[in-house]
Design a protein around this nucleic acid. Structure first.
Lengths: 213, 213
DNA sequence: ACGAGAAGAGTTGTATACCATTTTAGGTTA
DNA sequence: TAACCTAAAATGGTATACAACTCTTCTCGT
């Protein structure tokens, strides 16, 4: 792994952490001094972040962390509704039993955390949920589909999404996981895709129209 | 236009020409000497080509021209079947009359060329067809959808695709264009999406199973 | 003869430097 | 007060030198 790769990962992580807030500028010299690197690998990392849509460049002024509007969130959900069902549609005919098992374990773990229901548990669920989706993408065995999803499913959107869920919505999400596993085990891609579609649309509804609590 | 821009264009052209064959390595120093530039702008051009999917970088080993397998082509069509209908689904409720007019002109122009039927005309049709799809994407007004499509619809796939068409397939493609325009004029996104889906699936069939001629 | 390991060539990765361009802030002047 | 000018600071583009890595090949020991 080269220095530019590391810088890319570090900056991305800091954007996710909120350490680099939206609309803030990332100074090449500043981060270069901090990591004890020259501007060269920093610049390369920033270019990649630009082409991946994490930051935007204002000419002669710098690299600014992009800010997300409501419209951006809607655009992402619109695309996820198309692509994530395709993931499981493919996975249904390709997944092997061992991966089904690990999906089951993830679902089980998430359900247990769901019973606790506190904020920390919800954070953990978010992490496990990401792993769940990542396993599915691997099972789908389509590098391009994976790349597209990674390009649009910015974690800023999904990271704290479960905090928008009501208890009912959270349980519903868990049931979706189980049903997707059953559909995959049955090798039924359309069934799995339908559940996934509902899963994403439910997430969208929770995100866009947070229930009063 | 910077030197890096020129290098980008030159390398891309050479890949299309076959001057840089698939799986061959593009040496930074070699092309640098040839164009009398340092490695810096060449590197930047290569990085851009990587993010556009034309070449891939093996760390410490070099930039290799990507090779397309049958599977890659299938993957791309699978994604286009999902995304391109979404383009027109959105466009149906957003397109304005002037753009409908220019789509009509493009369709008209393509139909005239279609009557000629020689190889040169078919090349021209390919260019106009790209413009047709580009207009639709603009009308869809979704930067992310646009980015995803640009990321997967590599010209190596679409460039010579019309040469695979039989006369019947070519005329069918022209009728699809007209029907998409009618559906958009009617503001019916699902109609337009269905035709587009057929349009892409027809292209896929022509590409994957060339008819005996 | 054969495998392990080292040396070397070739290539990419990074540091540093230079100048141009542009923006911003601050100060000056009418 | 307002317009203008200037200098500082940052990026943008490129060149060059050196460091680090990979792969190949050749040697050496068994």
């Amino acid at each position: 792994m080269t220095a530019a790769d590391r810088v890319y990962a570090i900056i991305k992580q800091r954007i996710l952490d909120g350490q680099y807030p939206a609309n803030s500028y990332i100074r090449e010299a500043t981060i270069g001094q901090e990591l004890e690197l020259s501007r060269t690998p920093i610049r390369e990392a920033l270019r990649r972040l630009v082409s991946d849509g994490w930051v935007e460049v204002i000419p002669h002024h710098g690299a600014r962390v992009v800010s997300w509007t409501q419209r951006d969130v809607e655009e992402v959900f619109e695309l996820r509704v198309l692509l994530e069902p395709q993931v499981v549609r493919r996975a249904a005919s390709r997944i092997d039993p061992s991966r089904l098992d690990s999906l089951g374990e993830l679902a089980c773990h998430m359900e247990q955390l769901c019973e606790r229901g506190d904020d920390l548990a919800i954070d953990e669920i978010a992490g496990l949920n990401n792993r769940f989706h990542a396993e599915l993408i691997t099972a789908a065995d389509s590098p391009r589909l994976q790349r597209l999803l990674e390009a649009i499913v910015q974690v800023p959107v999904s990271r704290r999404s479960f905090h928008h869920y009501s208890g009912e919505e959270l349980h519903s999400s868990m049931r979706h996981h189980r049903e997707i596993i059953r559909a995959l085990a049955a090798g039924d891609g359309e069934w799995a895709a339908s559940v996934m579609r509902a899963h994403i649309l439910a997430a969208r509804a929770a995100q866009l129209h947070p229930p009063a609590r």
